[in-house]
Structures are given as structure tokens and as C-alpha cells.
Amino acid sequence: MLSIILPIFNMEEHLNQCVYSILNQTYKDYELILVDDGSIDKSAQMCDEYAEQDNRVIVIHKENGGLSDARNTGVKVAKGEYIFFIDSDDFLDDNQALEKIVNRLKNSKADVLNFGFKKYYANEDKGYNYFKIDKNMPIEYYKHEKGFEFLIQNSLYIASAWNKVVKRELFEKNNLSFKKGIYSEDIDWCARLLIVAKKFDFINESFYCYRQREGSISKSISNKNLNDLKDAIVTCYDMSNDLHDSFKNYYLSYVAYQYATFLVCQAKVKLDQENKIYIDQMRKYSFLLKYSNNKKVRILYILNRLLGYKNLCRIMRIFYGVK
């Protein structure tokens, strides 16, 4: 059985599309845990109505504590063998999505199953596949480090909880709770997941639609966003100290991509005394860029080597039109 966890905060506009994309799945053996995180719109009432319609729906009403707290609350009551997080403004565009997930897990018995997704634009009513790959992970990669290598070499392991299905026992045995009160919570969580999971898998199915919204957390960048991102990268790097060399190099490729994300984010905020400190603090971690085989990250690595960190940051600010 799957446990699908849906954190919800003031999402009445998109909630029906999200929930019914789950309830209308061909695969039926799951529980849908709706965590109402202190909504003040109609979301809380809608959750109760879903539960009245379908006995697979479990509703938890709680005080607002943020996305991480809502996810953690859902995990505590989950009973399924695997956990699947879905954000409440996203949805599944294939009613066989869960069936494909379960069938794949029956074969691979992976700790973590990764899958593709689309960036969905409501104004176009269209989604665009994010990953550029045309195959699943080969079967012979299931039971050893090759699986992780496949993910990293093809840039398939991203800092996102919602494009993964994770064995529930990993949460119980490894303290895989999400850190509360921070942005970029998925970066640190996905890094810890990399370290504790033993079997990885990937299916080239992009049934998850990641809604692109103006004003969402991922679209608006503040000094707190930048500071939390900085702290997450440093935490991830510190966790690499005890890893053996062959695994460590691939792990640091994941961290390098997050470092590149920091460079992009710093270029999108207006400079002030506070964020200048964060940017300067990250200078000493610029060596991380060398670990990535991602083409865009490699370009940043080359520019950093040729021009230096300070000039790289300036060029990026010019590119994004922020002074």
C-alpha cells in the first residue's frame, strides 16, 4: 500500500484538481493523507468533504507550521510501505501513474523510486518534460551503487521530495524528518536520503505536473531564502566527510548543482549588506562546481576558474538584470 501525503495551506483554487487526480487513479490500494496546515480559506472544509466521499482519505487539521511540519505530521500517521509526497497545487495527469509506480516497485524493490515530471503552465494548459532522457534505469543497476551513478550522470536526482517514492522504513530508521522553519528544506533532506538509501530506481514517466505559479516559494527570493540555501549547501557538504571516495564524488555532484542554484539565486536579489555577507561566505565552497557533469554547472565552473568568484557573481547579476 502507498501512503500519499498532501500538505495543504490555502489552496482552494487548485485543490480539486490535485485531489481528484489521485482519487481517480486506476490503482486503489492507498491512503491519501490530507494535512490541513491551518488554512483560512475553504481548503479545510474541502478536505473534510473529500473524506466523506472516500474512506481512503485521512484528514489532519493542525495549526500552521509550514511545509516541513505538515509533511512530518503526515509521515507520523502513514501506514503504507512507501510514501509519496504531492504538493497541493500540483497534480497527476495520468490515471495510471500509481499503477506504474507500484508495478515498478514490485520488480525493483527499490528504497527510492525517482520519476520524471512536467513543468505545467496554466496559461498554456500545457506541461513540458523536465528530464531529457528516453529510457528507464537498466534492471542490472537495481542492487548496487550503479543505480545512484545512473541518476547522477544523467542529472536525474534533484532536490525535490515530490518526484520520489520512498520506503517508509527509511523514515523510521534514519530520522528522515524535514527541518522546520527553513526554505530549501528538500536540499538537505534529499542529501540525507542519498546517504541512507541502498537501492535507487528511475522510471522515465512524467505523470507529475509541477505547477509554475508566480509568487510561489520557488519564484520569490528573499535574504532568508538565500541564507537558508547557503546553510543547506554547507550542511550537505559537511555530511560528505564520512563518505567513501567513489560514492563521495557522485554525492558532491548533487551538492555542486545546489551550489549553482545559490549562484543563480544570489543574482536575483538586490544587493544589500546582509546578503553580501552570505555571498562572500560561499566563496570558499566554489570548488564544489568541479564535481558536476551537468553542462550548465560546468560552464559556471569554467567561468569561476577563468574570472574568479567575484566576477562570476557580477556576470550573473548582469545576466539576470539585477544590481
Rank of each mutant, 00 (worst) to 15 (best):
Met1Gly: 03
Leu2Val: 10
Leu2Phe: 11
Ser3Glu: 07
Ser3Met: 04
Ile4Ser: 04
Phe9Gly: 06
Phe9Pro: 07
Met11Trp: 09
Met11Gly: 13
His14Val: 11
Gln25Arg: 05
Gln25Pro: 01
Leu32Gly: 09
Ser43Tyr: 01
Cys47Thr: 07
Ala51Asp: 06
Asp54His: 09
Val59Thr: 10
Asp69Val: 03
Ala70Glu: 07
Asn72Tyr: 05
Asn72Glu: 02
Thr73Gln: 08
Val75Tyr: 01
Tyr82Cys: 07
Tyr82Lys: 00
Phe85Tyr: 05
Asp89Phe: 00
Phe91Glu: 01
Phe91Arg: 01
Asp94Thr: 09
Gln96Trp: 14
Ala97Trp: 03
Leu98Lys: 12
Leu98Cys: 07
Glu99His: 08
Lys100Leu: 13
Ile101Val: 05
Val102Gly: 01
Asn103Leu: 15
Arg104Met: 04
Lys109Pro: 07
Val112Arg: 03
Val112Gln: 02
Gly116Tyr: 01
Lys118Ala: 02
Asn123Pro: 14
Glu124Ser: 15
Lys126Glu: 04
Gly127Ser: 06
Asn129Tyr: 10
Tyr130Arg: 06
Lys132Ser: 06
Lys132Trp: 07
Asn136Arg: 06
Glu140Leu: 06
Tyr141Phe: 10
Tyr142Met: 13
Tyr142Val: 05
Glu145Gln: 11
Phe150Glu: 04
Leu151Cys: 01
Ile152Phe: 01
Ile152Met: 09
Leu156Arg: 00
Leu156Met: 12
Val166Trp: 00
Lys167His: 11
Phe171Pro: 09
Glu172Ala: 15
Asn175Ala: 11
Leu176Val: 11
Ile182Asp: 05
Ile187Tyr: 07
Asp188Ser: 13
Leu193Cys: 00
Ile195Gln: 06
Ile195Asp: 10
Ala197Arg: 08
Lys198Ser: 09
Lys198Gly: 08
Phe200Glu: 08
Asp201Leu: 00
Phe202Arg: 05
Asn204Met: 12
Phe207Asp: 03
Tyr208Ala: 06
Tyr210Leu: 10
Gln212Phe: 10
Ser216Ala: 05
Ser218Glu: 13
Lys224Asn: 10
Lys224Pro: 11
Asn225Asp: 08
Asn227Ser: 15
Lys230Trp: 03
Asp231Ala: 13
Ala232Arg: 04
Tyr237Asp: 12
Met239Glu: 03
Asn241Glu: 15
Asp242Glu: 10
Phe247Val: 02
Lys248Phe: 01
Asn249Val: 04
Tyr251Ala: 08
Leu252Ala: 07
Tyr254Ile: 11
Tyr254Ser: 12
Val255Phe: 01
Ala256Gly: 04
Ala260Val: 13
Phe262Cys: 14
Lys268Asn: 05
Val269Lys: 02
Asp272Tyr: 06
Asp272Cys: 08
Gln273Thr: 04
Tyr278Glu: 01
Asp280Ile: 09
Gln281Asp: 13
Met282Tyr: 02
Lys284Thr: 07
Ser286Arg: 11
Tyr291Trp: 01
Ser292Gln: 01
Ser292Arg: 08
Asn293Cys: 03
Lys295Glu: 15
Lys296Ser: 15
Arg298Gly: 12
Arg298Glu: 07
Ile299Trp: 07
Tyr301Lys: 13
Tyr301Ile: 02
Ile302Arg: 09
Ile302Leu: 03
Leu303Pro: 02
Asn304Arg: 06
Arg305Lys: 12
Arg305Glu: 05
Leu307Ser: 14
Gly308Ala: 08
Leu312Trp: 00
Cys313Gly: 05
Met316Cys: 13
Met316Phe: 08
Arg317Phe: 12
Ile318Ala: 06
